[in-house]
Amino acid sequence: MNFWNRHNGTVLMTLTAAAIVALAIATALPTAQAPANAFPRMPDGKPNLSGIWQANNTANWDVLAHPARQGPMTALGAAFSVPGGLGVVEGNEIPYKPEALAKKQENASHWLAADPEIRCFQPGVPRATYMPHPFQIVQSSGTNDMLITYEFASASRIVRMNSKADSPIDTWMGWSRGSWDGDTLVVDVTSFNGQAWFDRAGNYQSDRLHVVERYTPIGPDAFRYEATIDDPTLYSRPWKISMPIYRRLEKDAQLVEYKCVEFVEELMYGEFVKKPRQQTH
């Protein structure tokens, strides 16, 4: 090996080292400082769904497309009437079996007396997602559980990651098991008690409900929420809802308690209160 070749070798090595450094910087930058238009990621590379989120639609009034209509209380006038909406159900149809459809219509006609939301009961899944309140996802990494906590009634659910454990009991919010399908968080929810509804229009479920949710980032501050809903007691086939969910971008966005139990006690227990009423504090 002559001098020139050796010198050349040094140059080559220097160039190689520079290239490695440049490559390292180039690859390090996106993780250290993600581009403004990218969904945030966790150190393990998974999308970081942690944050305060909220739907912006009228699905809690009716998951199907519906026109605006007057609200149930005359005194509340335009302030609490029902906004129209495009619906969130794929194909705009819930495939109720005939006998189940009759019950849905009965629910709708007795909405105020029968909807669990009116009495501040936990809203179940997927309804909790698109109520007119924010919710917070607390996502960790690896096999650590996630928490999804909703402002309404402080309803909450633990998402057990890569867990095979079954729920020992049926519940309002179901038993959630999570896994990743690429950049999509998939949550399989079972063990419902069947008492929750989907909306204020009387769409309902039984204790055979099975919901598979998919949370897929679609921009820096939004993810697509999809839920496939199966319940062989009530529906002739599974059906699907889909909607964007938006990040609450206010500075210091946070959930504010909405502990609604005290808002419904008069409704639920007023008839058993001693008359005439006395002043209490």
């Binding site: 942690s50 996502q139 559980d145 928490l147 906590t149 946070q254 959930l255």
Partner: peptide
């Protein structure tokens, strides 16, 4: 059950399913 994500700790209480949500970013109280 204690949950953590970047910038948050949540102490979730079984009773009344009450979450104590604790931001760690130094923001002021309400």
């Amino acid at each position: 059950q204690i949950f953590q994500s970047p910038g948050y700790v949540v102490v979730f209480q079984e009773l009344i399913h009450e979450p104590r949500i604790i931001p760690l970013d130094g923001r002021s109280h309400l």
